[in-house]
């Protein structure tokens, strides 16, 4: 086992771990599932790390492995999912003086995003991470035009969920 490789990997992941947390946030509903997925993504990242040649940024490379794990490789935990738990424990938004209505709207939005399917969540995630359509299409393996079309559909879907 190459210790320097392990060391640099742990160091990089430690710095960029919020990317993994954010993916876990979108794809899981409770703390246990979040931790499970975090671990599986870490294992997959580590397995793929020897092939990481630094051609892209570590964070960009992470998006791909993390999403692949969440969408395809990870087997959902069989534990009962409790969305209530999700809201109350893990993901408290930092308390700043904030407009109550906007706060409420955001909560509804996060709930709505949770109702999207796995592919739609990936689109939303990359969009929120400020990735352009070229990167989105490259990560998902679809054409740029289709990524745009799908993104518009997702926006419409979110609107429908929020205003039934």
């Amino acid at each position: 086992m190459d210790h320097s490789l392990e060391h640099s990997f742990v160091d990089l992941l430690g710095k960029h771990q919020n990317i993994v947390h954010k993916v876990c946030r979108l794809y899981t509903n409770n703390q246990d599932a979040h931790n499970d997925l975090f671990q599986e993504i870490t294992i997959q990242l580590w397995k793929a790390f020897p092939k990481f040649r630094g051609e892209s940024k570590f964070s960009t490379w992470m998006y791909r492995v993390a999403l692949n794990t969440a969408i395809t490789l990870y087997r959902k935990s069989t534990r009962t999912l409790n969305t209530q738990e999700f809201d109350s424990i893990q993901y408290k938004i930092e308390a700043e003086p904030y407009d109550d209505t906007e706060e409420q709207q955001l909560k509804l939005l996060y709930d709505a995003v949770h109702q999207l399917n796995d592919i739609e969540k990936a689109l939303v995630f990359l969009y929120l991470e400020d990735k352009n359509y070229a990167e989105i299409s490259d990560t998902l393996g679809i054409s740029e035009v289709n990524a745009r079309v799908k993104m518009n559909r997702v926006k419409t879907k979110l609107k429908t969920i929020l205003n039934p």
């Binding site: 997959q44 990242l45 397995k47 793929a48 092939k51 990481f52 490379w61 791909r64 492995v65 999403l67 692949n68 794990t69 969408i71 395809t72 490789l73 592919i119 990936a122 490259d138 990560t139 998902l140 393996g141 679809i142």
Partner: peptide, 10 residues
């Protein structure tokens, strides 16, 4: 490999 695009991996 997990570094492929989502579609290719599937």
């Amino acid at each position: 490999t997990a570094t492929d695009s989502v579609r290719v991996l599937m």
